[in-house]
Design a protein around this nucleic acid. Structure first.
Lengths: 253, 253
DNA sequence: CCATCTTTGTGCACGCGTTCACAAAGACAT
DNA sequence: ATGTCTTTGTGAACGCGTGCACAAAGATGG
C-alpha cells in the first residue's frame, strides 16, 4: 500500500468503514470492465475474484451500502456501478489543481485516469516563472502567486502537491487557507493540517523500502535453520556482518 | 494511503508486524534529517512528532527491533539510522528495472528518491521500438525483447511496472518468470502472482476517489439535522436526488 | 552513595477489520 | 403451489493494531 491516511483516525464516515471505502474504487473498476462487456449480473464470488479480494468481505462491504443484490442471482452490474459511483461522489465534477509541475507533476497532468472518473484538472501551478504560460498536457501552467485566486475561481476543494519536499508544507498551508479541504501529497514530507482537512500520502520511496524489507527477508531465509524455506533464492551476496552488526551508520540517506 | 499490500496476508515477517515495517521508512526519513543537523540524540516524543505518529506507537515499533534507547536520554540518532537501514535492507544495493517508459515511467526514472536510498535504476524497458536507445534520465531505454536477459545480467529482484493496464499482467508474468520477486505496480490492474512474490500497488485514481468520498461527506453535512457540522462549506451544488436516487448508471467509468 | 527526575519499554484493554459458516430469501422448474 | 437450488446478507469469533498508563532503568546532581 503506497498510502496511509494521515488525519481522521479511522472514524467511520457514515457507518461505512474506512477500509471499505478504500476498496470501493477497486470494485468500481472491476464492475466497469464488466459493464463494457455488457455483462448484466455478477455474483459476489466472480466479482471478488476480479477485484482480488475475499467474497465474504465483498458482500459485507456492499451490505454497508444497502441491499443491492438478489439472492440466488447476484448483483446487477449497471445498478451497482451507479450506486458505488454515487457513494464515492463520482457523479459530480471535481475540479483539481496540481501544484509543482516537475517530472511527476507533468506525468500526473497527463494521466488519463483522472479525467475519466469525474476529476478535472482545473489548473497547473508552479513556482518557476519560466514555466508560466507554457502548456503541459494542453493546460497552461500558472504561477504560484495566483494560487488563491485560481482556487476560488474554480471552486477547487481537492489539491495535489507534487513539489519538492521543502516547499510542500508552505504550499499546503496556502491551499488550505484558500479553501482546499482534501490533499493528495506526493512530496516526501509529513504535512500538518487543521482538523477537517484530509491528507493522503503517496510515497514512492517508502513503497520500495517496504519491498526491500521483504526481499531481504526472503534472501536471508537460506540461513535460518527453521522450517527451511523452500528453494531459497541466493541471488545476492550476503552483506550481513552477523545478526547484530554494530557498525556505525554509513547510509547516505 | 496509496497502497495496499496484495499478497502476504499480514504475516509477521520475523516478529516485526507489517504495520511497523510500513512506518520504519518514515522514522528513517525523520532521523536522517536530524542526522544532517548533527543532532546526537532524540526522545521518542520528539521523533514521533517529526514522523507524525503517536509516541507510544513509535516506542513499541522500536521495541520490535530491540532495545536501542537509553532511558532518561532517548535514542542515539546515528545508531538508530543504521539499525533501521539494516533492518529495511538498505545497506545493500538493490538494482531495479522500470518497465513502461511513458510519462509516469520517465518521471520515476528521474525521481531522486530512489537512488538516494540504495535503489539503483539498472535498466529502463519499453515495448515501443522507437524508444529503444533513447536516453531517459541518462539511461538508454531497452526493448522488451531483452527483458529476461536484463533481469539476469543485473541480478534484479525488484521490478516497477508503469505500463498501460492492458500490458501489466503480461509484463508481470515475464518479470516473475525471469526471477523478480518484488513488484511495485502503478498500472490500474489487479496483478496475480505466485506465492512468494510480493506486490505493492500505487493507484493515483483510487486515492483521488477516496478523497472525493470524504469531500462529498463534508459537503453533505449541511443537510444532516444531526450534530450540525461546524460551518459546512456549501461550495458545490447538490446533485443528490434524495438519499436513494434510483437513476440507472450514467458514469463513463 | 543516595535521591530525584526523565524517558524508555511494555502489560493491558479496547476497537476495527477479517473470515467462517449458516440461515433467510428469492429464482426457477415442475 | 410447492420444492429445490443458488446466492446473498450477517451473527459471531478471532486476531491485529493502537493507545493508555505505569513500572523499571538509567542519568544527573548533591
Amino acid at each position: 500500500m503506497a498510502t496511509g491516511r494521515t488525519h481522521r483516525p479511522a472514524t467511520r464516515s457514515r457507518g461505512i468503514p474506512e477500509a471499505t471505502v478504500a476498496r470501493l474504487p477497486l470494485y468500481l473498476r472491476a464492475l466497469t470492465a464488466l459493464s463494457e462487456r455488457s455483462v448484466p449480473t455478477v455474483s459476489s464470488e466472480e466479482l471478488a475474484a476480479a477485484a482480488g479480494v475475499n467474497s465474504a468481505k465483498l458482500r459485507k462491504d456492499f451490505s454497508y451500502l444497502g441491499s443491492y443484490g438478489t439472492r440466488g442471482v447476484g448483483y446487477d452490474v449497471e445498478y451497482l456501478v451507479y450506486q458505488i459511483s454515487r457513494e464515492l461522489g463520482l457523479t459530480q465534477d471535481w475540479p483539481v489543481v496540481i501544484v509543482g509541475i516537475g517530472n511527476l507533476g507533468a506525468a500526473l497532468a497527463n494521466y488519463g485516469g483522472f479525467a475519466s472518473r469525474g476529476f478535472r484538472v482545473a489548473a497547473l501551478i508552479d513556482a518557476d516563472p519560466a514555466m508560466a504560460g507554457k502548456p503541459v498536457a494542453g493546460i497552461p501552467v500558472q504561477h504560484t502567486d495566483d494560487l488563491e485566486q485560481i482556487i476560488e475561481d474554480n471552486g477547487v476543494s481537492i489539491g495535489v502537491i507534487a513539489t519538492p519536499a521543502g516547499a510542500a508544507q508552505q504550499v499546503c498551508d496556502r491551499l488550505v487557507a484558500a479553501g482546499v479541504t482534501s490533499i493528495l501529497n506526493f512530496a516526501p514530507t509529513v504535512l500538518s493540517v487543521p482538523d477537517g482537512v484530509d491528507v493522503r500520502k503517496v510515497d514512492l520511496s517508502i513503497e520500495l523500502q517496504i519491498l526491500a524489507f521483504h526481499e531481504q527477508r526472503k534472501a536471508g531465509e537460506e540461513a535460518t535453520p527453521d522450517g527451511a524455506g523452500p528453494a531459497a533464492v541466493t541471488r545476492r551476496e550476503s552483506t550481513d556482518q552477523g545478526p547484530d552488526g554494530d557498525v556505525p551508520a554509513v547510509m547516505p540517506a
